[in-house]
């Protein structure tokens, strides 16, 4: 395996700090320029949740997320029902691709939670594949415990943070 050209983009972005700061350890301030790997930004209206073709309908009426038990990545019966609904919608809306985000609650070490979030995202992906969704329409990502939805430190919040969220995006359909 060798270094990819993509590295050059990263270098270009992070390198700005180096240009401004010749001393050995640099001193990039809070305003250091960024935009690493930002790419283009797609803007898509969420639409009306009463419109079965809208993203809002998918997110709210079908449900864009499934929840998990502590330290588990097994889908619950309720979770599978949500995913059956997601699969049905995705079958009838082939223009959409998805990213499945796996998350963990804060009760765990950082690395383990990254791996656990990936397991959860993969559990959703595997189920959607079993429902006939083409793997080429899906990507997974884990945020571990880096992006909690709820911020309290008890089970009411933890239960909502142990989640896998299906995020729709236009294009790149099968």
């Amino acid at each position: 395996m060798t270094f990819l050209p993509k590295a050059l983009l990263i270098v270009a972005a992070l390198g700005l700090a180096a240009c401004n700061n010749p001393d050995r350890f640099g001193a990039g301030g809070p305003g250091a320029d960024g935009g690493m790997g930002a790419g283009g930004i797609d803007t898509t209206g969420l639409g009306d949740p009463n419109d079965p073709n809208s993203i809002a309908y998918f997110n709210q009426r079908i449900g864009d997320r499934v929840l998990f038990a502590v330290d588990q990545s097994t889908l619950s019966a309720e979770g599978r029902q949500v995913l059956v609904g997601q699969a049905g919608w995705l079958m009838s809306h082939p223009d959409y691709a998805i990213i499945i985000e796996g998350h963990a609650d804060e009760q765990g070490t950082r690395e383990y939670n990254l791996a656990l979030g990936a397991r959860r995202a993969a559990a959703v992906q595997d189920f959607l594949i079993s429902q006939g969704i083409a793997p080429s329409r899906m990507k997974t990502i884990s945020y571990g415990k880096e992006r909690p939805l709820e911020v309290c430190s008890d089970e009411t919040c933890y239960a909502k943070n142990r989640r896998a969220v299906t995020v729709l995006s236009m294009g790149a359909g099968a």
Partner: peptide, 13 residues
């Protein structure tokens, strides 16, 4: 203290 990256992306460990 010196900052090595900006905060446009999550960085870890």
């Amino acid at each position: 203290v010196a900052y090595l990256t900006d905060s446009s992306s999550i960085v870890l460990a």
